[in-house]
Design a protein around this nucleic acid. Structure first.
Length: 271
DNA sequence: AAAAGCCCCTGGATGC
DNA sequence: TGCATCCAGGGGCTTT
């Protein structure tokens, strides 16, 4: 479900409210993608210092260690002073004196993982290979082009892989390539410098626009207050197979790349 | 080193 | 109504 904008919207919607909270317990439900990696009792009495984001991970700094939260495909977080008893798909409740943070995740591809520090092996394994933040200063056109030069895979799959630039998921990969006028099947190393620069701009604009609109609401995205976003209202190509391109009217095409669907306009995306 | 496939899981939509 | 099939916003792991 969540790509960078949704994860960041989620973070912003509860980070300030949970800062300073004293943890009383962590209650886990069915197994998630990875085990917590520590006795939950270790968390009791710790304080939540803040919540950062790296790619699609949320890093919750504690007084002694950190919790990594990932929403997988279907996860969402909710933070409230009072929540109803956990339902079938509520698999983690972090209880604090300021409220409960609840992970709701039907498919259970998400995770909550404890790490003693960012140098902890588990943290390095999950975060160590991540690319640069697309909305940060490390994402620059020239370096981006240089990184693409080393990759022969289709550009769509390189965007999605997250080792060059993080946070671009399946929706925004298609949207950014449309905005840049680039064919998703184009081999990354064949992009010219102007094309890489266009894609760099497109990734930033698509993500920051979605972020400003509160994230996408394809199915059930909600921020930690249970409010929806609006991005799906203006997707240019995603999930529009056979429909007319909003720019030129040509029928949008769909294809499969690495077991994920891709959408593009054959007329607007010739590069 | 990089690329391609596989797989984890549940639920909704579609087809017979 | 029932059942089978396919698809879904991610990404680590194993195999080429």
């Amino acid at each position: 479900m969540p790509e960078l904008p949704e994860v960041e919207v989620t973070r912003q919607s509860f980070a300030a409210a949970i800062a300073g909270a004293r943890i009383s317990a962590l209650r886990m439900g069915l197994p998630l993608r990875w085990p917590l990696g520590v006795d939950p009792a270790v968390l009791a009495g710790q304080t939540v210092l803040g919540v950062r984001r790296r790619g699609k991970y949320l890093l919750m700094d504690l007084s002694d260690g950190l919790l990594l939260w990932h929403l997988g495909m279907s996860g969402s977080l909710r933070f409230d002073a009072a929540l109803p008893p956990p339902g079938k798909h509520d698999h983690a409740d972090l209880l604090t004196n300021l409220g409960t943070l609840r992970l709701h995740d039907p498919r259970r591809f998400g995770a909550v993982v404890f790490a003693a520090s960012e140098d902890d092996v588990v943290a390095v394994k999950l975060l160590g290979g991540l690319g640069v933040e697309p909305l940060g200063p490390g994402f620059a056109p020239v370096a981006f082009h240089a990184a693409l030069k080393k990759r022969r895979a289709p550009i769509k799959q390189v965007l999605l892989a997250g080792d060059v630039v993080v946070g671009v998921g399946n929706i925004y990969a298609s949207e950014a390539l449309f905005a840049a006028g680039i064919r998703p099947t184009r081999r990354a190393h064949l992009l010219t410098r102007p094309q890489a620069a266009r894609l760099h701009t497109a990734v930033r604009e698509v993500l920051s626009r979605a972020l400003a609109l509160g994230g996408s609401t394809l199915k059930d995205f909600k921020n930690a207050h249970g409010e929806s976003g609006y991005f799906q209202l203006d997707a240019m190509v995603y999930d529009r197979a056979g429909l007319p391109c909003r720019v030129c009217g040509t029928a949008i095409k769909a294809l499969r790349q690495g077991q994920r669907s891709t959408f593009y306009c054959p007329h607007c995306q010739k590069a």
